[in-house]
Amino acid sequence: MDLHFELPTTGDGAASVWDVAIVGGGPAGATAAMYAARADLRVIVLDKGLTASALGITSRIANYPGVPEEISGAELLRRMREQAQRFGAVFVQDKVQAVDLESDPKLLFANGGTYEARAVIIATGSMARGQRVKGEEELLGRGVSYCATCDGAFFRDQDVAVAGNTDEAVEEALFLTRFARTVHFLSPTPRIHAPEPLLHELSSQPNVRLYLGAALREVIGGDHVTGVRVALRDGGEQVLPVNGAFIYLQGGRPATDFLGGQLPLNETGCVRVDAEYRTTIPGVYAVGDVLCNHVKQAVVAAAEGAIAAMAVEKALRGRKQLAVDWSK
């Protein structure tokens, strides 16, 4: 076991209250960050990774205004983030697990520490999972895991499966290669949405078996996991004998679990907002695909991010009207 001793950080190494914390770094979050930072607010964006967003996994985008060439969604998003960073926004790769939106300052509990902010913009999109696969819930903690870095050590010299197609799934699988005898990587799509160097690292590991277009159907086991049933691309099915099933699949539901019921949701699980993207809790805003009646286009999400950021600026500075400093 390698020994490390560090205290959790809150983004810039100091315990500090941010003006705005934005959860999610897709087009809505990145644009909100750009506008808020340009208005001289201290902005932090907490994001799971580039391919956690719908735009990040879009292979080509040709209808984003001002970008006539066909570029990948990940590249467009990278440019948006870079632009926001130029105005001083801080992006941190971290996963928010829970929040306290009523406290002052508001608290975001993430893997890397607790972040404090005067205002929060929720821009987590709608790629959360809906239904779990058969056996998943029953075997949670008995071989089913959502955290390889937490639980990898329990699977030394054993066979495990990783289901997912994002950079998060690839990184977790790479962590598992240190412990497991064999890592079966099950990507539900023919292509894994992760940067090329990461993919290369994964495919060059001697103890990794890649299955592209392989859908996890069931986790099998009694006291603990003994296998996974997988639907293969050719229409067949296979049961892989494994002791661990690490699941990083995505879905099409608004990502609101981390809110712990603090914001009222409608029957389809969406957050409700007003014309300035304010939720029912003062100082808490929501933008992008996490909303209802939202047209799922990057340009729309970006526009909503801009409006919310201006509304935050207005609220924090105690003004009555939205304002943009056009001269900068």
Binding site: C147, C150, D151
Partner: peptide, 10 residues
């Protein structure tokens, strides 16, 4: 817990 588990301190 394990030392690499970010959820564990809570």
């Amino acid at each position: 817990v394990t030392p690499t588990c970010p959820y564990c301190p809570r």
